[in-house]
Design a protein around this nucleic acid. Structure first.
Lengths: 223, 223
DNA sequence: ACCTGAACACCGTTCAAGT
DNA sequence: ACCTGAACACCGTTCAAGT
């Protein structure tokens, strides 16, 4: 078998999976997901767009590899040797959020893919393992994994959407937040009106910790 | 002011916001978000694509209007006159999931937009109001709203991704689930391996109830 | 006022042909 | 074996011009 991954005998290949992945992640950070096209990735490497298809069958495959790459080290980084189950789960969830935040539109990339690579599955196995060792039933451990992961993706999606450059707009704040504040102020929303500061707050770490605390607290109550 | 919303004096308009919205949601259900293009929406109404821009400034605006429309009646439908706060929040979250599930790729559409329309803000106000009336602090009420909404979006995103047609593939099951089962079976994932049935389960109602239960449980403990 | 026609500047993907 | 060149079948958006 002489696949694209074997050492080149003839010309040295200008392309390979690893370099393409690196280039794509770099372009993502500089330009965002909407500007991440196969043509632009190829251009960064001085090849034609079609050449990429020797290493990734589709753009979706490239995005999946990017998501997998983002999760590198998250499972390992959350190894708290002396921690109890709640500390381990908290560390894993925080590590996931941090990993997604580390790349522009990281949550959007992750949400749009389903990697079965070692980083994502290693994360899942570590999470489920921590719960099983703490005595949780098997099916609860898996459901808790999905719940925490879905919450973390949902939260980080919002967080990165709120922190976006805004392209147009006058100054500092998010255009979405401004529109929200205006509409709430002029509309029949008594409760939201009373809580506008929290509603338009950009303290996402606190919001994440609040939600994660509810989940871990709910798990503790079940035990 | 004679905007596109005023009654036409000359030719009767073949287009308007409401009809375009209806057509777009119908096309979404039949073809999915990836096939929802301005050109195809226009084609369904026998106009040129450019004509749509008299009613929606961008495709993003159309998507936002679609998301807002999907949430119609959710706040009202969750009015449990005799219910306590936990029942009211549960009904709201279930209503949101149901509303997103009611349209193909509904969660993806919702996740990609930030409506400040009456359905979305009414939902938010009702949620926060239920918590304030139960005696929760204001900032906790808003954080709980975001947490439940983010979890619900994250969950439903996964649910709709798993239930997709799969385009190719041999029979019944999801291709993602099959790939997951194979990789886990052949890899170093002892905990996931022990829980493969739950890991590849398609019992999403149960998974949603589990996560929602954790959140409500966590809120109850805080009170 | 409302829509057409046509353009502009792009996309993902395929594949014969070159080296 | 690896990449080019060129094509295919599309996109979102704009805007002068028609009716």
């Amino acid at each position: 078998m002489s696949s694209p991954s074997s050492p080149a005998r003839g010309r040295p290949a200008r392309l390979d999976r690893a370099r393409t992945l690196e280039t794509a992640l770099d372009l993502l950070d500089r330009s965002g997901l909407d500007a991440l096209t196969m043509r632009r990735v190829a251009q960064e490497m001085d090849v034609q767009a079609g050449a990429l298809y020797r290493y990734f069958a589709t753009k979706q495959d490239l995005l999946t590899a990017m998501a997998e790459r983002m999760m590198e080290g998250v499972a390992e980084g959350a190894e708290a040797p002396g921690g109890d189950w709640s500390e381990r789960l908290t560390a894993l969830a925080r590590g996931m959020r941090t990993a997604l935040l580390a790349h522009r539109d990281g949550a959007r990339v992750f949400a749009g893919t389903h990697s079965t690579g070692k980083n994502v599955l290693g994360f899942a196995d570590t999470f489920v393992g921590a719960m099983r060792e703490a005595g949780f039933p098997d099916d609860e451990a898996v459901r808790a994994l999905y719940t925490v992961a879905n919450f973390t993706v949902g939260h980080t999606l919002e967080e990165q959407a709120a922190l976006q450059p805004e392209h147009g707009g006058s100054d500092g704040g998010s255009a979405d937040a401004d529109a929200l504040a205006e509409t709430v102020s002029n509309g029949p929303y008594p409760h939201l009106k009373a809580d506008l500061p929290t509603l338009t707050s950009t303290d996402f770490p606190r919001l994440f910790e609040f939600g994660l605390g509810l989940l871990i607290g709910g798990l503790g109550a079940r035990r």
